[in-house]
Amino acid sequence: MTDHIDQDRPGRGDGAAGDAHRAKPTSSAFEIILPALGERPAFEVGEAVSVRDRSPIGHYRVPIYLRGHVGTVVRIIEPVLVDNEAEGYGRNAGSRLHYYRVAFPLTELWSRYEGAPGDELHVEIFETWLERAQ
């Protein structure tokens, strides 16, 4: 096999741009660099994401009032950072992923919210707590 580099392996964060540049042969060594799993953000700015609704034992960095709610990614926080929840338990090897700044309408979080309709909550959430909203 000589063309194993072109074998596409869909990975986390492997977006359309990555597929496009591998589709055509190129002479640039830089254009065939394949990012490792987790190296690229899994979610894009503007994407709807839901916060996983799970309740592990211990202190976790995702407030309970946000779990299960749907928000919008407004910023990908660079660089990748250690999962400080795992770090809190002494497990941090290889746990670097992206944090995302996610926006939620306050009227969506609180059914009886009494402010203005445009009011929002923004929060940073680690990648492992997010999934694509259906």
Binding site: R61, V62, P63, I77, L81, V82, N84, Y99, R101, L106, G115, A116, G118, D119, E120, L121, H122, V123, E124, I125, F126
Partner: peptide, 15 residues
Amino acid sequence: PDDVEIRVSDSTAAV
């Protein structure tokens, strides 16, 4: 006024 958006940032982790 209501036409000014209140944007609350909840600092929870590394930021």
